[in-house]
Amino acid sequence: MSTAVQAAAAPVDERLLRTSPLRRVLGRPELGAVVGAVAVFVFFAFAADSFLRASSLSTVLYAASTIGIMAVPVALLMIGGEFDLSAGVLVTTSALVSSMFSYQMTANVWVGVGVSLLVTLAVGAFNGFMLTRTRLPSFIITLGTYLMLIGMNLGFTKLISDTVSTKTIADMEGFPEAKAVFASTLTVGGVNFKITILWWLLLIVVASWILLRTRVGNWIFAVGGNEAAARAVGVPVRATKIGLYMGVALAAWISGQHLLFSYDVVQSGEGVGNELIYIIAAVIGGCLITGGYGSAVGSAVGALIFGMTSKGIVFAEWEPDWFKFFLGAMLLLATLLNHWVRKRAEATK
């Protein structure tokens, strides 16, 4: 089959035949995650009777989407060779800014939503700017941002609301519309789906497009794979990295607005620890921890594994405490598998 396709392409080398289609599949970064996802799916399909019900799958997809929305830009950032430890609490920051600005300053929630977008993007730009200016490891820079954001989330909320959570904004103008955009439920064929699933799919498509088909995508792979070489051939390394951090911030804004409009109040201490889950999803999805390799689709499969495991344990009526154990085991297995697959793929020469 592949020979016919290849014969149609312009200059074909007869030795191409030695690259079997199987080899091509093995060379994909997301392969390990797909194998893992199928295994987890089959496992819970047998272990939990209710797992295969449409409503259960919708719950699984919802759980996956809340992680997946962030895992997509985090994966791009990791391909670009950097971490963002502040991503989890930035989601909370974004929700808090939106909620408190709306409540204190204006009668329309959309103003708060807009201000929140600016503030969140500014935090992303700050991360990227600090990284490219100081050349310190992103681990340190974003760890600093992470701690500062935790402090500011709690500090400002207490200062403004006198408690650790925000006041409800459910009765404010624009709330129903904003809820429709960020936190509504759609019914397809009698099954309810959260709108975050659509946001997630949109981000996967856009990120894959950028990564695989645009110049910026080429630059992302290059700054993560060999920053010095990228700089030497004229790739705007600094702008690429700042852009990647702002991409994470954009997704944090979407996540944050979802958080706010699903519950109409925000707990200021939320989000701590989520940054690691995003990174885990990206790594399970085939992102190389050292940068230069990975895919957006892979991170989505990683998030799906996360969703299936976290909800599958509940459907199987096990102790939810075991979830973290499964996640850790999955991370190790997926990374080992990815490592092995990549070695096999690269040994083809």
Binding site: N218, F221, A222, G225, N226, A228, A229, A230, A232, L288, G292, Y293
Partner: peptide, 8 residues
């Protein structure tokens, strides 16, 4: 040594 990005 920095002519190319090996994984690309």
């Amino acid at each position: 040594d920095l002519a190319v990005v090996p994984l690309m």
